[in-house]
Amino acid sequence: MLMRITVTLLMAALLVFGLVSWADYDFWLMGPSPSHYTWWWPEEMSTLGQHADNLFWLIMVMVTVMFVITMGALTYSIWKFSAKRQDKAVFSHGSHKLELLWTAIPAAMLLVIAFSQMSTFAAMQFDSSMEDENGEELPVLCEIWASQFDWRFRYPGRDGRFGTNDDFESAYELVIPMRDREPDHDKKKNIFLLRSRDVLHSFFVPHLRFKRDAVPGMTQRIWLGVDDEQLAEIMADREDKSFDIICAELCGWGHYKMSGRVRVLPDAEYEKWVDEMTALQFGNS
């Protein structure tokens, strides 16, 4: 009897805890934290991040339903059928109808998830997402170099071309324009070349919901777009206007040291920053 109660309670506790932990994610285990960072994912500010978050919630709803059904059934059966009794169990080898039912329903749910994400994934990663209406490639804003254990961001300077004398480098801090002059939400794209000098690294910006490995020997075109409304909301109660860049692929003993920041500026300020950096490039300090 003791064991019966214990096991049932354990399972029920897991069920309740599983639900509570997702519903209320700011409790004592976390320790003190200001509003920006909880044990949930950080605020989202990219043009596509909302789609990822929505997909997350869609899956969350489905998974919660399945979790409650299965864990509930498990907990209930443990309590119900572990009672001491003399009669035999139900003699049954299965049910064809039930099998069909619980194959078809999850299959349908999984297919819904699978197909609902395809367009987002294509918009995130396909080459066509980095072209303009005429199929021409959009110009590159900046070259992201990963190396052990540093991020370097190389800008083409005023002439827009790499490998010329007005290129300038920024260590640690990636600065990108908000593209607030561009009215079309879907066109607020900044194109980057992602490269590695030595081993695999991964360019991860939690706030932008973006991650891509930097593979040595490969040049990858990637794009990031910032949703200015979301950004304004986030910036409203933050003193610091920049966000973490993290290396997400093991790159050696100093993996944990490989950090950077991304700062998003309104277009006008971005232009000013480029001027400043150019002045610094040819400065004598």
Partner: peptide, 20 residues
């Protein structure tokens, strides 16, 4: 059950990009 259900997020590519 828990391990299997959490795997579904990983299969969903846009979410996996974040949690990878």
């Amino acid at each position: 059950i828990i391990g299997g259900l959490s795997g579904i997020w990983m299969a969903a590519t846009p979410v996996d990009i974040y949690i990878h």
